[in-house]
Design a protein around this nucleic acid. Structure first.
Lengths: 218, 218
DNA sequence: TTTCATTAAAGAAAAATTCCTTTAATGATT
DNA sequence: AATCATTAAAGGAATTTTTCTTTAATGAAA
């Protein structure tokens, strides 16, 4: 099934969530020198159904060979491309606290297509310093630098109560997508993309499972 | 995405994912002095359906009052309790790199019931140092310290290719739950709880939405 | 060559989740 | 006191996502 010239197909979010793990697995196999990988192998690694894998991969351009599987090298390329990891996008980060500076340090982000070009804060102790070669400015500065620098994403790592204020600023800056690391939900115009990533949600899920297990004993 | 085989999960995972945001909202209202909050208000804040909110909250002990809503103070207490944020659990963290040290710095975790008691690494430059008062040991040390210190959770923030090795160690340590921040999927015995939190998945979702928007243009 | 077993792919069925509708309750308004 | 409007809650419909089933292809083995 040719995809490129066809209409846009909405890819289920769970599918996109699984894909980076497929990619990580395929990259590992590539390092080991394995040429082909079957959906069964991937499914086994992921602890999911093999048809889930083939269905997920059917959204990409890759075609598997019967009785052989997918070519590992092609899989890595196709997934990287599909997930948008091969194109560099520029981002601003607001809130250079613990989580914020961690992201600034994380070279993984640049490896996956995200280039943080500047950070902002209100805390005078960090302003003017450089974290991993990324300068930290006061939030009031560079009001319209985003368009100038072709920055399309804003990362929010401030305390939850300041999230909306920062989001409003980012929208005013002309930013297209916001990656919100606070548990607060922000209100933005419809054409702005928002991705909420709340670490504490994951914590809640673990605690819930721990609790259930403790109770159920099975 | 979640566990294989039989999972006895009474509360839907999406529900648990939303709850920390309900909590953040309620905490904000509490600070402002608002006494009651309706499902409509919460839904409006979250950009979801009001019935979704009532259904989610029906899993907890709280009961709303018709035409009034939920008592904010009670909501904060009930949600904190329900999400397991009121009981302290001890954790080990392995991989004191950028993301790892960020988590060590994050006071939010201890606020939400997680107490990181020690960190481990193989990089000699960090070993022996303290990050936010948490000592970093070599991975070979303290093989069975976890039981001694009543540590039930292990946090993996190493490179993806080392995730499985670390997971095996943690299982040997007698750990009950693993919070895996790598895109690699780890294999552990059935009774061990695994929560995968891959930042790059969220990045992939944003890129996907940005791409679709670029193409659509309608 | 022929048979067999494994695989991708497509479509159907099942399960999970979200959204919609109805009902009853009750504070606010007249 | 009577009416109105808003709300929580419950049940069911619609949608989304996952799992199951079937089919066809083909490399490997006999």
């Amino acid at each position: 099934m040719v995809q490129s010239s066809k209409k846009i197909q909405v890819v289920p979010e769970p599918t996109i969530r699984r894909m980076p793990s497929y990619l990580a697995f395929a990259e590992g196999l590539l390092r080991k020198g394995q040429q082909f990988v079957s959906s069964t192998q991937i499914a086994n690694y992921m602890n999911i159904d093999p048809t889930q894998v083939t269905k997920d991969l059917s959204y990409t351009a890759i075609v598997g060979k019967t009785r052989v599987g997918y070519e590992v090298k092609a899989l890595v390329e196709v997934l990287s491309e599909f997930l948008g990891f091969t194109v560099m996008d520029n981002a601003f980060l607001v809130g250079a606290g613990s989580l914020g500076s961690a992201l600034l340090h994380d070279s993984g982000l640049s490896h996956f297509g995200l280039n943080i070009v500047a950070a902002f804060d209100v805390n005078s102790s960090t302003i003017g310093k450089k974290i991993n070669d990324i300068e930290v400015f006061h939030i009031d500065q560079f009001r319209d630098l985003s368009q100038e620098m072709n920055v399309i994403m804003g990362i929010i790592t401030v305390p939850a109560e300041n999230a909306q204020t920062v989001a409003d600023l980012m929208v005013a800056w002309g930013i297209k997508a916001i990656w919100n690391f606070t548990p607060a939900r922000i209100k933005v115009p419809d054409d702005i993309i928002v991705q909420n990533t709340t670490l504490y949600s994951n914590l809640a899920i673990i605690f819930n499972k721990l609790h259930n297990d403790r109770k159920e004993t099975r």
